[in-house]
Design a protein around this nucleic acid. Structure first.
Lengths: 210, 210
DNA sequence: AGGCGCATCTAACATAGTTAGGAGAGTGCG
DNA sequence: CGCACTCTCCTAACTATGTTAGATGCGCCT
């Protein structure tokens, strides 16, 4: 039996190894794409053989789940940070939100792919790993409602619009910035339709942190 | 050497076999999903062994290409048929277009996946198989322009909007119809923004075939 | 009849994810 | 100290899948 301090130390080491594995997997995914991600390569990068990974993860899908869970978690943090820096004007805030979603998805292709779960045949994220993403959407919905948009449907349309531009960017213009340029125009269309007021020339910054 | 009639007959047989293989592949994809599509299963369904498929296709990706090429081709035909039945009112026509895109993508999940090419790691469609899809987009652009939309960007935004709703449908609401219901509202938003006139109460039908 | 082309076959290979079972290090108790 | 337990990692191997090599046999042309 292990006593308490040693149990803790072992748990830490385990966690560290798990993190190392997930980091290695992301490194490979970023360098060569998710399609090139093999357990043997991941294992090699952390100085192991493939079967040893099964001491830390139940399957390859469990590794995907950890990868995506980590990304969603970081995403949630970045959204929380964004909210503190959000301008006061509703339309400006909507645009900043939109640009944030877009940049996040575009800057880091493999991380975007997690939003389109069909990229990995047979993989379904676990509710736990997906939770931060759900919270982000709920927060975004709440924030958008606070801007004066009362309809869930209008919010869903905004999300669809941004998601669609992201997809088109990846399909037609990866590397370019045509669809990033369309984002402001698209959000303006949407803002007019839902009745957000026109933007001030010089928007002041808002919300000192509590 | 073969004389001309026999060469033709052989070519026909070859084409028939290719079609049979592609049909079998679609059947499996529809029943079990693209992830479950294996060459051994495809071959079994047409009464062959897997390596024999290589007499007709250079690789599994070549089979995907044929599958998607066929789907794009049928899609082009359905768009041509749609255009004859398009109502005269610009906003009504835009909605009918939008609903058509949406229904096509939603009714037949595996066929939709071809639009999101990232589903099959390592697969890129050939320009030839993809040509009908390009023509459909060009026709759609021309038709939308004819409705009075002069900006490529506004057209791109419409496409993004519809594509985004389709993606959300597949991700969040497969089987339901929430996003189908949002489509009209979304297209109305877009139509107002680009200045299409309000819809007539009773739109007459248009364009007898030439 | 003889020969050529071609679709199909069997056998096998390479690469994946995964499982079985054992070796060795660390830890705690007698 | 020595023994036993646990845990991580290992080697070996299995299975599934795309793919290649080479043989076989059928049909058509001369």
């Amino acid at each position: 039996m292990l006593d308490a301090p040693n149990r803790d130390r072992n748990a830490e080491r385990r966690e560290a190894t798990r993190r190392e594995i997930v980091e290695a997997a992301w490194a490979i995914a970023r360098e060569s794409g998710l399609a090139e991600l093999t357990l043997r390569d991941v294992a090699a990068r952390v100085g192991m053989r493939a079967p040893s990974l099964y001491s830390h993860f139940a399957s390859k899908n469990a590794i995907y789940d950890a990868m995506f869970g980590q990304a969603w978690s970081e995403y949630e943090s970045s959204v929380l940070a964004l909210e503190d820096a959000l301008p006061e004007h509703p339309r400006a805030a909507a645009k900043q939100y939109g640009r944030h979603f877009f940049d996040f998805a575009v800057d880091d292709l493999p991380r975007h792919q997690l939003m389109n779960q069909r990229v990995i045949p047979g993989f379904e994220p676990s509710p736990e790993s997906y939770a931060p993403a759900v919270r982000v959407l709920e927060r975004a919905a709440a924030n958008v409602r606070e801007l004066g948009v009362t309809s869930e449907d209008d919010f869903a349309i905004l999300i669809a619009l941004i998601g669609g531009l992201i997809n088109q960017h990846h399909a037609n213009d990866p590397g370019g910035d045509r669809y990033a340029g369309l984002l402001d125009r698209a959000i303006d269309m949407w803002a007019d339709a839902v009745g957000l007021p026109a933007e001030d020339p010089a928007p002041p910054s808002r919300k000192s942190a509590p």
